[in-house]
C-alpha cells in the first residue's frame, strides 16, 4: 500500500512520563487541596458564608491586610525604582554587596524577619527610640508596623522585576531623546518612566500578592488587637483553633478572591499602559 499510515513523532521523548509525573504532583499537592478551599465554605450555605464574612472582625481584618499591603507596595514603588536604578546605572563602592542584599527578604525565614523588625521598631529598639523622640511615631504594635513588615517582604519583588527591564532598555532611547532636544526631566518623565511602567506594575502586583498573605513577619510586630491590628491570615488561624473549619475556609477564599481581583485589575491596567504607548 503506497499510502502509509500517519506517524506521530515527538522530537524529544519523555512527554508521557514527565507530564504524568507533573500532573500527579500538581494534582495531589496543589489542585485537590485548593479545591477543598473552594468547596469547604459552602457547607455553611451561601447565607452562612455571607454572615461569616460580614462579621465586623472579619471585615476589619481583611481591610487591615489589604490596606497595609497596598500602602506598603505603594511606598515600595519609588524605593524599589531607586534601588534598581542604583544597581543598573550607578557605579559606587558596595554595589555588588547591595545586589546580594536585595534578595535578603527572599532568603531570610519570615519568623526571623518578624522578630528582627519588632526588635528594631519596638519602643526601646534601635529605630523605635529615635522615631519616637523625633516625630512621636510608634511603629511596632500599630498598623504602621504591619506596613513596615510588608515593605520588607515586598521590596525585592519590585527591584527584581524593574531591574532587567532597565538593563535591557540601555541608554539609546535616552540619548535619542537628548539629541531631539529633551531636557533631563522630560527624558525621565516621557521616555524612561513609561518604559518602566509595565514592569513597575508587575512588581507592584507581585509584592502586593505576597504581602496580602504574609503571616510570619507580621504577627510579631502587629500587636494582633482585634478590630485594629489583626490581619486576615491570623483570623484564619484563630478560627481553625476553634475548629471552625468552614469559617476559616471562608476567610481564606475571600482573601484569594480579593487577591485575584487585584491582580486582574493590575493586568488590565498594564494592558492599557501598553496600548497607550503604541
Amino acid at each position: 500500500m503506497a499510502c502509509g499510515r500517519p506517524s506521530r513523532v515527538a522530537p524529544v521523548p519523555g512527554l508521557g512520563l514527565t507530564l504524568g509525573l507533573t500532573l500527579a504532583w500538581v494534582g495531589l499537592v496543589v489542585v485537590i487541596p485548593l479545591a477543598a478551599l473552594a468547596i469547604k465554605p459552602w457547607e455553611l450555605g451561601v447565607a452562612g458564608v455571607a454572615q461569616s464574612l460580614a462579621e465586623p472582625r472579619v471585615l476589619s481584618a481583611l481591610a487591615v491586610s489589604f490596606g497595609a499591603a497596598l500602602a506598603a507596595s505603594i511606598i515600595n514603588l519609588p524605593l524599589g525604582l531607586l534601588l534598581a536604578w542604583a544597581l543598573v546605572r550607578l557605579d559606587f563602592p558596595g554595589r555588588r554587596v547591595l545586589d546580594s542584599v536585595i534578595d535578603l527578604p527572599f532568603a531570610l525565614p519570615t519568623a526571623v524577619a518578624g522578630i528582627a523588625l519588632t526588635a528594631l521598631f519596638a519602643p526601646n529598639g534601635w529605630l523605635g527610640v529615635p522615631l519616637m523622640a523625633a516625630f512621636g511615631w510608634q511603629i511596632a504594635y500599630t498598623r504602621a508596623g504591619i506596613a513596615v513588615a510588608l515593605m520588607f517582604v515586598g521590596l525585592p519583588f519590585i527591584v527584581r522585576t524593574v531591574e532587567p527591564v532597565l538593563r535591557d532598555m540601555g541608554k539609546d532611547a535616552e540619548e535619542a531623546a537628548a539629541t531631539l532636544g529633551a531636557i533631563r526631566p522630560q527624558t525621565l518623565g516621557r521616555v524612561v518612566l513609561p518604559t518602566l511602567a509595565p514592569a513597575l506594575l508587575t512588581g507592584f502586583g507581585l509584592a502586593c500578592a505576597r504581602a496580602v498573605g504574609e503571616y510570619g513577619s507580621v504577627i510579631f510586630i502587629a500587636g494582633n488587637l482585634p478590630m485594629a491590628t489583626e490581619i486576615a491570615p491570623l483570623l484564619i488561624v484563630i478560627r481553625l483553633e476553634q475548629f471552625d473549619y468552614a469559617g476559616a475556609a471562608a476567610v481564606g477564599l475571600a482573601m484569594l478572591c480579593l487577591s485575584f481581583t487585584i491582580l486582574l485589575g493590575l493586568n488590565l491596567l498594564q494592558r492599557l499602559v501598553r496600548r497607550g504607548r503604541r
Binding site: 503506497a2 502509509g4 499510515r5 500517519p6 506517524s7 506521530r8 513523532v9 522530537p11
Partner: peptide, 27 residues
Amino acid sequence: LRILAGLEGTDSGTVRVDGEDMTGVPA
C-alpha cells in the same frame, strides 16, 4: 528534512531507506 531524520511525523506517505519502511522508527 526533519521527517527524514525522524524528528517530525507524517500524516500519510512513506519513507524508505534501502527499501526499509521508516514509519514509526524513532530518530
